[in-house]
């Protein structure tokens, strides 16, 4: 049984099939990359998994249990957390409260005593200790993205969906960000990441899924994907791999 699995997942916006009959799976402990040109349907697939949208038709399973049709907050409490491509921090709240909300309202199996120690640990984990009491709106985009990561981790997820966490980062930040994903994997969290930065994708992912026009067109190890003719034609060929950094 896969940790996360989708069968025939489809959604239309008007006449457009944003995600079309996609089968996918994610196994425990993996880092899975989700790539494809802009508009391929990657974010929409995250929206479907996190229940911001409902597949029609199609089904999504988490640990063998059907989760399509549930409310987003339930999906989160079950153990699937996410970040957003366009950051959605709680801008008027300080970093610490952004993360605290995740700890207080996420997976509810554990005892709800004082969440401060774990909140502070997560803030340190993503490197935001110095700005812990600063309102999120006063921080740079790179910092806000890290707030989202800490907030998502605070919900104690088994699967973390990262949507273009590395977009717009400078080379130093990019390296830090790649380290962060590896550390998240070491915490025992399974990661699915949407990313355009090939260095990151090829460097961290165990497996890659390629979407194009809503369809899954390839799947495999970074090596297989880098050597796949179809992928090179529809995706890698279009953008210049070597120079694509930010």
């Amino acid at each position: 049984m896969h940790l996360l699995e989708g069968k025939g997942v489809t959604i239309h916006f008007g006449g457009l099939a944003a995600v079309s009959d996609v089968d996918f799976y994610v196994d425990k402990g993996e880092v899975v990359g989700l790539i494809g040109p802009n508009g391929a349907g990657k974010t929409t697939l995250f929206n479907l998994i996190s229940a911001a949208l409902q597949p029609k038709p199609g089904e999504i399973f988490f640990k063998g249990k059907k989760i399509s049709g549930m409310a987003p907050f339930k999906i989160c409490r079950l153990g699937i957390a996410r970040t957003f491509q366009t950051v959605k921090v709680f801008s008027n709240l300080p970093v610490i409260d952004n993360v605290r909300i995740g700890a207080l309202f996420g997976a509810q199996k554990r005892l709800k005593g004082n969440v401060n120690p774990e909140v502070n640990e997560l803030i340190k984990f993503v490197g935001l200790t110095e700005v812990a009491n600063t309102p999120a709106r006063d921080l740079t985009l790179a910092y806000q993205k890290r707030i989202e990561v800490a907030r998502a981790l605070a919900t104690k997820p088994e699967v973390l969906l990262l949507d273009e966490m590395m977009a717009g980062l400078n080379p130093t930040e990019l390296t830090e960000s790649m380290e962060l994903v590896k550390k998240i994997q070491q915490r025992g969290v399974t990661v699915v990441m949407i990313e355009h930065v090939m260095r990151a994708i090829m460097g961290i992912c165990d497996r890659i899924i390629v979407l194009d026009y809503g369809k899954k067109i390839a799947e495999g190890t970074p090596k297989e994907i880098a050597g796949s003719k179809t992928v090179i034609e529809v995706y890698l060929g279009v953008t210049n791999v070597g120079s694509k950094k930010a």
Binding site: A52, R77, F105
Partner: peptide, 13 residues
């Protein structure tokens, strides 16, 4: 009040 969508995805009912 800040971001309802994010709140829902952070486990808030």
């Amino acid at each position: 009040g800040d971001n309802e969508e994010a709140a829902a995805h952070t486990g808030v009912n």
